[in-house]
């Protein structure tokens, strides 16, 4: 019985708290810019409001545009259910291979980019082109950074990686720092953060993610926004649980789960603070400078793998 409850908790955790972390990041950024900022719960209110609005869809849009938000949101729910969040003993029915997670994320990106083209607007297509450029060049660094951990822990399964990383002596973490740097670059690229994209921009010249979703409104916009919040939290969860895994393993009884769950929230919150601070301290890069950064991420991971063998 508790097991079923825990699995349910695992499934709803990501969508339930992801807006909170978006709100937190925005709040911290506002504070760093000497603004008061909206309350942390503002993203929930935005979603609620959007879900109650009527919708306008372009004449040119096909079913791809109409179905994409559901497909993207569903894929993030599915990923949220298969990655370890607060326990490694959970009887997750899914196979949480890291390649499955990365390619499922690509699944979402693929449909988002198609939806951007579908309405035939002047912005959407260019957003899609830029998004696919960044996403495809991120892939190498992302795969190899997690591969570093997979090689250390002798499994490509995320549950296994996290489980084995906890028992690693601290001295072994030197190459992991390189992999973590590489992963962080991939995180910024995949979740549309500085220096890749400005999550709050609506300026034609600079937007990537926002350009693709310009034509969405109402419930579909809510789903897309929520899905990108989910994606953000998924990356944060992967980051904190893989690279700072301590405290996640437990016997799996209820009281212990409560502790690991709290610990996860605190770790993810701290990671959010870090990202917000990092974002506030750097400027957005020109689009043709981005590939260099992404290749750096790839090179860092290669170096990390060379170091561990």
């Amino acid at each position: 019985m508790t097991n079923i409850l825990l699995v349910l908790l695992q499934i709803i955790l990501i969508p339930a708290v992801s807006p909170l972390f978006i709100g937190l990041t925005r709040k911290v950024k506002a504070k760093l810019q000497n603004r008061r900022g909206a309350p942390i719960t503002q993203p929930y209110r935005d979603l609620w409001k959007l879900l109650h609005k009527d919708e306008v869809v372009s004449h040119d849009a096909s079913w791809v545009f109409l179905a994409a938000p559901y497909l993207i949101f569903a894929s993030t729910i599915f990923i949220g259910a298969i990655i370890p969040l607060f326990s490694t003993t959970l009887p997750t029915i899914f196979t949480s291979d890291f390649l499955v997670v990365i390619y499922l994320l690509a699944f979402g990106t693929f449909f988002l980019a198609l939806a951007g083209i579908d309405t035939g607007g002047a912005f959407g297509g260019f957003g899609s082109s830029r998004e696919m450029l960044v996403a495809s060049l991120t892939e190498g660094g992302l795969v190899l950074s997690i591969l570093t951990l997979a090689l250390i822990s002798h499994t490509t399964n995320l549950t296994g990686i996290i489980h084995n990383m906890t028992s690693m002596p601290l001295i072994n973490f030197a190459p992991v720092i390189l992999a973590f740097a590489s992963f962080t670059i991939s995180l910024l690229a995949e979740t549309c953060r500085y220096p890749f994209d400005n999550p709050s921009t609506h300026l034609e010249l600079t937007m990537i993610h926002e350009a693709m979703i310009l034509e969405y409104s109402g419930k579909r916009l809510a789903l897309i926004e929520w899905a990108s919040a989910n994606k953000y939290l998924i990356f944060i969860a992967l980051g904190v649980n893989m690279f700072f895994p301590w405290g996640i393993t437990g016997s799996g009884n209820a009281s212990q789960i409560l502790v690991t769950l709290l610990l996860f929230m605190v770790k993810a919150g701290l990671f959010c603070l870090g990202i917000a601070a990092l974002e506030s301290s750097i400027a957005k890069l020109r689009i043709f400078k981005l590939p260099k950064l992404l290749f750096t991420s790839f090179a860092l991971s290669v170096a990390a793998i060379i170091l561990i063998i």
């Binding site: 109650h52 609005k53 009527d54 919708e55 306008v56 869809v57 372009s58 004449h59 040119d60 309405t119 035939g120 607007g121 002047a122 310009l214 034509e215 109402g218 419930k219």
Partner: peptide
């Protein structure tokens, strides 16, 4: 909620 059709944003 209603879903209405209209033209794409064209500036």
């Amino acid at each position: 909620q209603k879903v209405s059709r209209n033209i794409t944003w064209d500036c």
